[in-house]
Write a protein that binds this DNA or RNA. Structure first.
Lengths: 112, 112
DNA sequence: AATATATACATAAAATTCTTATGCATAAGA
DNA sequence: TCTTATGCATAAGAATTTTATGTATATATT
């Protein structure tokens, strides 16, 4: 996604959180939103995004609705109940990851 | 390493930072230190650690010194000049990652 | 004395996630 | 007309990690 390898594993968290805020979004919209929010720091590639969306749908975390807008197809995704729960989990995991890494990298921050 | 996939890509950062503090460490010691600091949250597997150490050595970021202690071999690693520089880079990347993710996940934090 | 656990290294197959490359199609701008 | 933007999709390859396995010595337990 970016030059930093740290983003590996964060894509699902990002997708779920965005859908949690926006109610429904389509793939291309997600890539643009992420570029915008991160000031071009993070560019989600289509090769990563679309397979990920398909997987989340297959797992029952997302529902799809296909709409035709301006003669072009858009696949709108939205969180299912299960997806909303998983969003909470993923966000907690992110916070935990950050805490743990801080403890490793900054010895002043110790975990209890 | 842990159940959370977010740690993917963080191993090198962790290794370099620990070596930056401790001057020289051997592989097994690193696994134990990490378990200790993270209160068992993160357990670095040998299958990930050893190949990673070899790679860092091949790239000229680490130097090795083999010592025999209590009739057992230990391969002590320490940062080279280049390794020390790369540590700075990796730590900056981590801080940047955290900032970017905060912006994505918490809309109140905006990047400039 | 025998067995299990801890210490210490190593590698290889498989899984996971992502990049890069490619393909199709329509709309809008230069 | 040609390029860029919009919108989806997949497949080959790269990179990193998990899981499994192997070797060997030291220490603790039964």
């Amino acid at each position: 996604m970016s030059n930093a390898k740290l983003y590996k594993g964060s894509l699902v968290t990002i997708i779920l959180k965005l859908l949690n805020e926006h109610d429904k979004m389509y793939g291309y919209e997600i890539t643009q939103r992420v570029k915008e929010i991160t000031k071009n720091e993070l560019k989600i590639t289509e090769g990563a995004l679309y397979p990920s969306l398909h997987k989340l749908e297959a797992e029952g975390l997302l529902d799809v609705e296909v709409l035709k807008v301006d003669n072009r197809l858009r696949k709108y995704y939205k969180l299912t109940e299960k997806g909303t729960q998983e969003t909470v989990n993923k966000l907690a995991e992110l916070e935990n990851y950050i805490k743990t890494m801080r403890a490793l990298v900054n010895p002043k921050f110790r975990l209890e």
